[in-house]
Design a protein around this nucleic acid. Structure first.
Length: 513
RNA sequence: GGCGCCGUACCCAAGUGGUUAAGGGAGCAGUCUGCAAAACUGCGAUGCAGCGGUUCGACCCCGCUCGGCGCCUCCA
């Protein structure tokens, strides 16, 4: 039985979909005016995994994830560059697909854009005015929070509390400081749509109400997003949607925790963020492995907890993944004995049960990974006792089919790393010092904290696969003749090119990068 | 000022009112190996920030203190 932590109630609740065997889920996507950072990656990944696991649990999932493509920041960026808003949003939607694609994040079943739902948005605003929940001031329309009884239910705040701490100067035309814009009149040169209140554009929150209700119905199952969206975005969505329909809106609210740098929230305003593409560019591993490493890293912590991003954690994830792919490589060789085949089935069954239990418990990927690690350890032992070719295939398949829930273990070959964690950390510190020096000289005022980097060194790739194989063969010939000096020299020269040899009992060797 | 979260071994990270406090990474020792690598085995928190309280019993519940953080403005 699946249970989900519901931000609305603050409790873990058994999950029950409105319609049997179907889940309707809406997740707030990104505002497309810039490249995505690791925080965006985490959010996208978390809900991707939730979607995958729901499907694994035999639900059909209608998964809607929007793009916000009308917004102040987009307009600003377009003006800076002297291009149209459409050009900006098209560019960054494309970038989004590229970056998330590298992370193996599947597309949602529906990815609506605000600009394509003006009719629905305008209709919804009209309904809210009609019902007396919204009012017009010149060309603007505001939602009147005092008219909505349950305002503050999700974020667990009272209107008075919010008012007391208001950090921004209040627009005097508003009836209550917390009233928020449903429709904004547009200034010349801004994107604009005709409406009963004059030419304008929608406020931020209304698009999500309009799009979710259009594509999923007035009441649906799960609504997700980052923690920072709880207030005001999701609170306002609830007010608008429930206000307009008089019905329940989303039944379960799921919010992911932040990615942090040095225990601080990663964010644009703090400037302490890493874009996804930056990580891929700096990574010393090929794209597929880097994506796998990032996923492994991001899923090592429960989705609601904060997650600190660092070189070391990333390398730990890489090393942990190495262990799996090392086993997969050994499983791909033919086996003659079937001594332990029966034990394999038991180990697999044990893993399946543990995996499901973990994921059923509010998508506890950390514990689910532990279950897979247990299976890895079990299979390693069984392999040394002897597994048939058949059983080896079954074992590899099992990792694949459970792993796909997390998007892991789907790769064919894996590039291994030789860099010990200690060494990598030193590299990181060196670069941090260098960076600090540059900052001191150039812009003393902006001494930002040292940023960790993925890695300094790109792997040397002096040898092609066939060249390596020739060297390996040469070494084994030397070994056969007990010329260990020569054998060790060859191994050493390969090692300095990042290639590791593992000798097999039969006198042949496997190697990895 | 209001609301809320977190503090578990060298690092990361699960977890439960009462069994041996998962798992990973790193480390050390051993087995195996020509030597390695990998794998395997063993070691590693008498304690879960600190102090009180509730309880037959608390890391887990309550209170306080210390430390870190988030939201209340755009933000995944």
């Amino acid at each position: 039985m699946l249970s989900i932590y519901n931000s609305l109630t603050g409790k873990k609740e058994p999950f029950q979909s409105l319609q049997p065997k179907t889940v309707r889920m809406y997740v707030c996507g990104v505002t497309v005016y810039d490249y995505c950072h690791i925080g965006h990656a985490r959010s996208a990944l978390v809900f991707d995994v939730i979607r995958r696991y729901l499907e694994f649990s035999d639900y059909q999932v209608a998964f809607v994830k929007n793009f916000t493509d009308v917004d102040d920041k987009i307009i600003k960026r377009a003006n800076e560059r002297g291009v149209s808003c459409d050009a900006i949003t098209a560019e960054f939607i494309e970038a989004y697909y590229q970056d998330m694609g590298k992370l193996g994040i599947r597309r949602a079943t529906n990815e609506p854009k605000a600009t394509e739902h003006m009719a629905e948005i305008i209709e919804l605003v009209g309904t809210l005015i009609q019902k007396g929940l919204a009012y017009q001031v010149a060309g603007d329309v505001y939602f009147q929070v005092e008219k909505y009884q349950d305002y503050g239910r999700l974020s667990k705040r009272k209107l008075e509390d919010l008012q007391a701490g208001a950090r921004v100067e209040v627009d005097a035309r508003k009836r209550h400081p917390m009233d928020f814009a449903l429709w904004k009149s547009s200034k010349p040169g801004e994107p604009s749509w005709d409406s009963p209140w004059g030419p304008g554009r929608p406020g931020w929150h209304i698009e999500c109400s309009a799009m979710s209700m259009k594509h999923l119905g007035e009441t649906f199952d799960i609504h997700g997003g980052g923690m920072d969206l709880i207030f005001p975005h999701h609170e306002n969505e609830i007010a608008q949607s429930c206000g307009a329909t008089g019905k329940e809106f989303a039944r379960y609210w799921a919010h992911n925790g932040f990615v942090q740098i040095n225990r601080e929230k990663m964010s644009k305003s703090l400037g302490n963020f890493f874009t996804i593409r930056e990580i891929f560019e700096k990574s010393r591993w090929p794209e597929a492995e880097t994506g796998e490493m990032l996923r492994y890293f991001l899923l090592g912590t429960h989705y609601r907890s904060p997650l600190d991003f660092s070189d070391q954690s990333l390398l730990e994830a890489k090393n942990a993944a190495d262990g799996f792919y090392g086993l997969f490589a050994r499983l791909e060789e033919a086996g003659d004995k079937s001594t332990a085949d029966k034990g394999l089935m038991e180990a697999i069954e044990r893993c399946r049960v543990a995996f499901r239990e973990a994921m059923d418990d509010d998508f506890n990927t950390s514990v689910a990974l532990a279950a897979l690690q247990r299976l890895k350890s079990d299979v390693n032992k069984l392999l040394s006792q002897g597994l048939s070719t058949e059983a080896r295939k079954i074992a590899r398949e099992e990792f694949r089919s459970l792993g796909i829930n997390l998007g892991l273990f789907q790769l064919g070959k894996w590039q291994f790393s030789q860099m010990p964690i200690g060494q990598a950390m030193e590299l990181s510190q060196v670069s941090a010092i260098t960076r600090g020096r540059v900052v001191r000289i150039d812009q003393a005022a902006e001494a930002d904290p040292p940023k960790p980097i993925v890695s300094a060194a790109k792997p040397k790739s002096d040898f092609s696969d066939t060249q390596v194989q020739l060297k390996v063969d040469e070494r084994n010939e030397a070994r056969k003749q007990k010329n260990f000096k020569k054998a060790d020299e060859i191994r050493q020269s390969l090692a300095s090119n990042g290639i590791v040899i593992e000798d097999k009992p039969d006198g042949t060797s496997r190697w990895k990068r």
